[in-house]
Design a protein around this nucleic acid. Structure first.
Lengths: 220, 220
DNA sequence: AACCCGGGCGACCATCGGACGCTGGTGCC
DNA sequence: GGCACCAGCGTCCGATGGTCGCCCGGGTT
């Protein structure tokens, strides 16, 4: 059934260097219209640039991708795909078969928690210990029942989360603006990128540098 | 023709945290009996442990490895394989068709330099910038004419280099001991591992932690 | 009901980190 | 010269990071 979560935004931060968050500490209402298991707080980021080095013969093999249309009942229970995100303003609950942005950001917090678990497990097994959210972390999340977390999604919105972490005020303003104008999630996502570039420039860093300065973004 | 290089061991260090080097600063004589191009100074390390996570069905497919026996003259010039290392004491020049350990350690310094070059190139191209010695760095080294540097070799001796960086005295003692006893390189290499474990334990860290504390080992 | 928009995420791919073991250089007899 | 030892490094492999685009959910008409 539907599931509503209430949590304070005054998150687990306990920041460290360069915390650009300004501190309005309202109570947020999250929601996943369908499931959910836990909730936390964290931040993230990374640009979508696809530079890649070693320019060479790029075989340029473009072939059709096929999907296994195995839509066979499965179990009858459990949604297949997450509801799409819509642009919501801070604290706003998404209506209908949609998810809001507070919920999106909470997924990043959850990933941070899963990373911590993976790190602890690795440590006590004497294995190599990741400092970033890796494939292994996504796998762990899935195995832990958080099937609604997946790599493509998290990577896709990472710089939106980053803006949220680095400057909540500006992030909130953007959300309200895009909601008001009735823009879709894709447009909002794009828009999140530019403030980050500006912030990086102001601090004389690249985007990655900005991420690394922030406790919660460092793991992305 | 043969090539001898003289350089001060008081290296480019300019350390930073936890520099365990004790500071005898003699003049070292390096040598690669056959080529060589430049020389620097740096340090490195990493254990050979093969933990790996996600224990699973390990397909265990063992198949014959084949080599391209293309020993065709090539050019007539240029050695194919590096001369093997022998255990030499500090400052000792390897005799005959052998290379000494000072030369081995210098290769790690060279790798550090190649990493810096790759980092600068990446930065000015706006590409992703490696913090570690990666495949790309080995590729760059090869392209830059340092064909005598290759990944398997560098990984193989990394913890020997680490010991050298973290405690030259002990490293030197070990070298002298193993040379005296006429042990082969493989035995010496193995022996380098244990002091590192002890050092890690003393500092309450794992091997990787020890590496990360040292300016020059961090890149491995 | 039918249509179309847009976005979730399965699955693909280049590349990586890591290591095995063949090949042949090297010293000894 | 012949042989046995042993180590250099070509080459392979599982897994990763990164992304494309198929497929379908969802709102609208």
């Amino acid at each position: 059934g539907d599931n509503t979560i209430i949590l304070s935004q005054n998150n687990t931060s306990a920041s460290f260097p360069l915390n650009l968050n300004s501190g309005t500490d309202p109570v947020l209402i999250l929601q996943n219209n369908g499931h959910l298991g836990n909730a936390v707080s964290a931040l993230m980021g990374l640009p979508d640039n696809n530079y890649s080095s070693d320019q060479q013969a790029k075989t340029l093999k473009k072939q059709k991708r096929r999907r296994n249309k195995d839509s066979t009942g499965e179990d009858g229970e459990g949604r297949q795909r997450e509801h799409p995100f819509i642009v919501t303003e801070p604290g706003e609950l998404a209506r209908g078969k949609k998810n809001g942005l507070d919920y999106l950001f909470d997924l990043y917090e959850q990933c941070g928690k899963f990373l911590l678990e993976v790190q602890h497990l690795a440590k006590e097994r004497g294995e190599k210990c990741p400092t970033k959210v890796t494939n292994q972390v996504f796998r762990h999340a899935k195995h832990s029942g958080a099937g609604y977390i997946n790599k493509p999604k998290m990577r896709h919105y990472v710089h939106c989360y980053a803006l949220h972490c680095l400057d909540v005020e500006q992030s909130n303003r953007l959300r309200r603006g895009y909601k008001e104008r009735g823009e879709n999630v894709g447009a909002w996502r794009q828009a999140c990128y530019y403030p980050l570039v500006t912030m990086a420039k102001e601090n004389g860093l690249d985007i990655e540098g900005v991420f690394n300065k922030h406790e919660k973004l460092r793991i992305w």
